[in-house]
Write a protein that binds this DNA or RNA. Structure first.
Lengths: 199, 199
DNA sequence: CGCCGCACCAAACGCCCGTTTGGCAGCGTG
DNA sequence: CACGCTGCCAAACGGGCGTTTGGTGCGGCG
């Protein structure tokens, strides 16, 4: 209660996340953004240095959230199926808790300047590698099927957790935990009914 | 050989698909597009009526491809697991054969005018309903697990086939059929190794 | 009280946008 | 040869863009 309002700069970043995610980066003008905050376009530049700085900061923020959520899992010792379940939960939670910046992250990273662009690409590779390691570990320890193609399996898992940004609605009846549990159950156990007849 | 070159209008649509998918709709100017075709910006308007017409036509084209691929499957009588496999194959094939327009479709539909926007939303609902019906059928006939949540299962399948636009590269070693078969195998059979121990 | 610095406004800058216009080569047809 | 049509160019239009600039009201501090 020492300071009831967020710093102006954070308010700007919040508004920018929302508007960029709703309309896209290039379709949002600085005057749109300023209007959303009740000010004039030029006044923004007392707090930020450029429009691209906003995009970079939003994307970096999202990257950091994913990193923090997944990196601590890397070294933990647990069965791969359980670890995969936990990774999916954390991944989806980050998406769900940051719908706006996650959407901007997935949609607008192409518009970054070369350095920031390269950083995002590098981050993607890191996450890819994380899931591939996890799956490889699972195959080696016998928790996951031995005939899995590591790369394709990672793509499948990443599809499930990333695509959530297009349909998940926070505040609905589904918590991130529910989504992750259901997805993990289906992915690990399979959709087919256990019939007993098998070629 | 009666006419070696495509009609100019089709060339424009092809270029627009590529540029819109690479840079985004708003980040591509009409002068960029014209330059790609070796002409002046204003000259485009001898063949098209507006920039948005291009976006609408690209998105409609993609919608039509999905419709044609999936609609014929609806009435066919086959076990649901096999039908799901075939649907995933056709879905991924459309994405793979139309990477540019599919990317535009997934990324830029938000920027359409209200009528075209509503049409795309309606299309999405149709595809959603198609997969939900298919899964419901599978549960009823006993091919798929009885405890599946229909909506979540459809989300999972759609994630897998839609997200392909972000990573698939035509001309690589993976044909759409390979991707679909692997995804369907993993989804239907599950990732977990058959141990024999089960609660 | 006088002063500073902060947050903002109003206006302007140069540039690029989507689109329109008028004109002009080339060419197949009468 | 004259005609009109097609496909394009060069230039311009009004407007919006991201950003800069000079000025102003105001709260806090010496």
């Amino acid at each position: 209660m020492t300071d009831t309002a967020k710093p102006r700069r954070e308010q700007i970043l919040d508004s920018a996340s929302r508007l960029f995610s709703e309309r896209g980066y290039h379709a949002t003008s600085m005057r749109d953004l300023a209007g959303d905050l009740g000010m004039q376009g030029g006044s923004l530049y007392a707090h930020i240095s450029s429009k691209e700085e906003l995009l970079i900061e939003i994307v970096n923020q999202a990257s950091r959230q994913f990193d923090e959520a997944l990196f601590t899992l890397r070294a933990e010792a647990m069965p791969a199926d359980q670890k995969l379940r936990e990774a999916m939960y954390r991944h989806i939670r980050v998406v769900a808790d940051n719908m706006d910046s996650a959407t901007v992250f997935f949609h607008e990273w192409k518009h970054l300047s070369p350095e920031a662009y390269a950083r995002v690409t590098g981050w993607r590779d890191t996450i890819d590698a994380f899931y591939r390691e996890l799956i490889t570990q699972g195959v080696q320890e016998g928790t996951l099927r031995a005939d899995l193609d590591i790369k394709m399996t990672a793509y499948l898992v990443l599809s499930a957790v990333n695509w959530a940004y297009t349909w998940y609605r926070p505040g609905g009846s589904l918590a991130p935990r529910d989504v992750a549990e259901q997805f993990a159950d289906m992915l690990l156990g399979g959709l087919r009914a256990p019939t007993g007849a098998q070629p």
